[in-house]
Computed example of a mutant assay.
Amino acid sequence: MHISILAVGRLKEKYLVDALQEYLKRLRAYARVEIKEVADQGYNEGISAALEEEVKKKEALRLEKHIKQDTLLVALDREGEELTSGELADWLSSLALRGKSHVTFLIGGSLGLTREIQSRADRRLSFSRLTFPHQLMRVLLLEQIYRSFKIIKGEPYHK
């Protein structure tokens, strides 16, 4: 399976980069995983809702340049569907059985994703109704993908 993660913004914090690299290393045994970062759009705090939409549109255009035609697109969205780790594992396993070998996860910037790019997604997933920093979501997503493959293979993993 080939998994792409398209994310807005660059990881700068060393502890997050280290965690990201650790999960990428662990995942090599199960899937080909790549992360593509696109530049975030700068803005000032307290901007209007209309300007927030403009920021998200510019970021979405950058993401869309990297979305491959044949991929199954998954948008991470606080209002998306919540799954357990076991349900995520079952879903990933079912994709392989249905011949879906490429999955792309989208992680928006600090303002999120546009409604247009969310509606383009084949699935919208939420990790929680809580808000997480978009940089941290990369690590959380990789950990859950890793956990999913451990579940799929019946291998032990801490709970």
Rank of each mutant, 00 (worst) to 15 (best):
E81N: 02
Y43N: 11
R115Q: 15
K57V: 03
L63P: 11
K100Q: 14
A39G: 12
E59T: 08
Y15C: 04
L125A: 10
K100C: 06
I107P: 07
G108V: 01
I117T: 10
E64I: 04
H2N: 09
I151L: 09
R147L: 06
L141W: 01
L16Y: 06
L20T: 15
S101F: 03
S48I: 10
S85F: 09
T71F: 09
F105T: 03
E53V: 10
L92K: 06
S85K: 11
Q144E: 07
L141E: 04
T84W: 02
K25N: 14
Q118G: 05
L11Q: 07
H158G: 08
M137Q: 07
I67A: 00
E79Y: 13
K150S: 07
R138A: 08
R78L: 15
K150F: 00
A39E: 15
Q135S: 09
I3Q: 09
A19Y: 06
E64N: 12
A75R: 00
A39T: 12
Q144Y: 08
L73M: 12
I35P: 11
G80D: 07
L113S: 10
G42C: 01
T84S: 15
S128Q: 01
A50I: 13
K57W: 07
K68D: 01
R124K: 15
L61K: 13
L125W: 03
K159V: 06
K159H: 15
D18G: 05
S110C: 08
R123H: 14
R98T: 10
R138V: 01
Q21G: 04
I151S: 03
E22K: 11
M1D: 03
E54Q: 15
L111R: 14
A39H: 14
T114Y: 11
E81F: 06
L51Y: 11
N44G: 02
D40L: 00
S128Y: 06
S119K: 15
S4V: 05
Y23C: 02
Q21R: 13
G9P: 09
E143D: 02
E34C: 07
G108Y: 08
V38S: 10
E87M: 05
Y146V: 01
E64G: 03
L140V: 05
Y157C: 08
K100D: 01
T84A: 12
E79F: 13
I35A: 12
H2R: 15
I5K: 09
A60K: 13
E116I: 07
T114V: 08
I117V: 15
L11N: 10
E87S: 07
G99K: 13
E87L: 07
E155C: 01
S119V: 00
R147H: 08
K25H: 13
K25T: 14
K36P: 02
L141I: 01
R26E: 10
L106Y: 04
K14I: 05
E22R: 10
A31T: 14
K159M: 05
Q144W: 00
L27W: 02
V17W: 04
L136P: 02
K68A: 11
R115I: 00
I35D: 07
L51F: 05
R28C: 00
K65L: 11
R98V: 09
R129L: 08
S101V: 00
K14W: 05
V17M: 11
Y15A: 00
K14R: 14
Q144P: 05
V103S: 06
R124S: 12
L111T: 11
S48E: 12
G86I: 08
Y146S: 06
E37Q: 15
E13F: 02
A121T: 04
D18Q: 14
Q69I: 07
G9Q: 12
A31R: 06
